[in-house]
Amino acid sequence: MNTQIDTQIDLQWLKACQIEDAIENGGVCLKLNDEQVALFYFARRNEWYATQNECPHKRQMILSRGMLGSLGDTPKVACPFHKKTFALDTGECLSGDECAIKTYPVKVENGTVYIGMTA
């Protein structure tokens, strides 16, 4: 699980969904604060990640339908459109020169998934 500091200024923990709504080793899309957020449950590594849903390459709302994987030790997601890949922990683009994607902290408490967003 990501260790994030929830004392960060302005960080709001928004209730996202129940654990069973998430997909093992895959992503789902959430509507939070009128933003589209992609939530990934990387079950093989027992890790949760959240990023923006928009792929910066052609600005498509799609990353939640992407495929998870690893590059060395880095967890990543590949966009379904043109297979650009992004690191899930840092948001960095791992293929080509697309800009990085936003990432959000995730925590799981009592079967509920929360995503930290700045208000």
Partner: peptide
């Protein structure tokens, strides 16, 4: 080994 990727999964 590792956790797979968009090449080996499909």
């Amino acid at each position: 080994r590792g956790h797979g990727c968009e090449v080996c999964k499909p």
